[in-house]
């Protein structure tokens, strides 16, 4: 089948502003949008820049706007979006070239969440694992799925309005540790998230949950963090 793909192009070494180029390629309805981009790059214009690696939705490299919504290009098939496709970089992060955006601010917010297990208590004396019940493990299961693709954060109107907001992905990371029964850093993280750039900026627009390619119920996770902040309880 014939696929028409309109792609946002911007080369900072040549262009003063972005523009769109349209390409027509021969493909299949089961092709990933990533396959279509590869075809354009491989056969028509090698200078087209985008990130990709695993090509099956687990590495988080290729979040982009496809027909106006955030998706992973490798997890979106032509049959899902039709043969007329528009591809643009995600919003809210500076475009470096074509579909490549500056991810450093995104990872900086991640790092602000103290994204590692905090537990100063002695390890079990028998030299074995810390114990955790299946129920306690299940409590934070969803938020461990996050692949840091930024689809959620860059779909968030609050983040577009104020780039200082830590954003949904960072809060999901905080959630992963706050609700881990082995972790002792919840109050520290809740304190960080209670600052002006924290959860107060979430207005439950729900865009993040819809954008998440891992089906994490992000708005719910943010709600749980907010609740913990208010009640001081983690259940």
């Amino acid at each position: 089948m014939e696929i028409t793909i309109k792609i946002f192009r911007y080369d900072p070494e040549k262009d003063t502003r972005g523009h769109y180029e349209t390409y027509v390629v021969e493909g299949d309805e089961n092709d990933r949008v990533l396959d279509v981009l590869e075809l354009v790059k491989g056969k028509t214009d090698g200078s087209l820049a985008f990130r990709r690696s695993c090509a099956h939705g687990v590495c988080g490299s290729d979040a982009m706007r496809i027909n106006g919504r955030n998706h992973l290009a490798c997890k979106t098939l032509v049959r899902d979006v039709g043969a007329n496709i528009t591809v643009e970089p995600v919003l809210g992060l500076k475009v470096k070239k074509d579909l490549v955006v500056d991810m450093d601010p995104f990872f900086d917010n991640y790092k602000k969440m103290l994204p590692y297990l905090i537990n100063e208590s002695p390890l079990p004396a028998d030299g074995r694992e810390r114990l955790q019940s299946p129920e306690d493990r299940a409590r934070f299961d969803e938020s461990t799925k996050c692949i840091l693709c930024a689809a959620c954060t860059t779909s968030c109107p609050s983040y577009w309005a104020n780039g200082n907001y830590y954003g949904p992905a960072a809060i999901v990371t905080a959630h992963r540790f706050i609700f881990d029964s082995r972790d002792e850093g919840a109050s520290e993280r809740l304190h960080i998230l209670s600052e002006t750039d924290g959860t107060v900026r979430c207005h439950t627009a729900y865009n993040c949950t819809e954008a998440c390619p891992r089906d994490i119920k992000i708005t719910k996770a943010i709600g749980e963090v907010k609740m913990a902040m208010v009640t001081g309880k983690l259940d």
Partner: peptide, 8 residues
Amino acid sequence: NMGLPFDR
């Protein structure tokens, strides 16, 4: 011990 969330 580093925090990896193994199933239990």
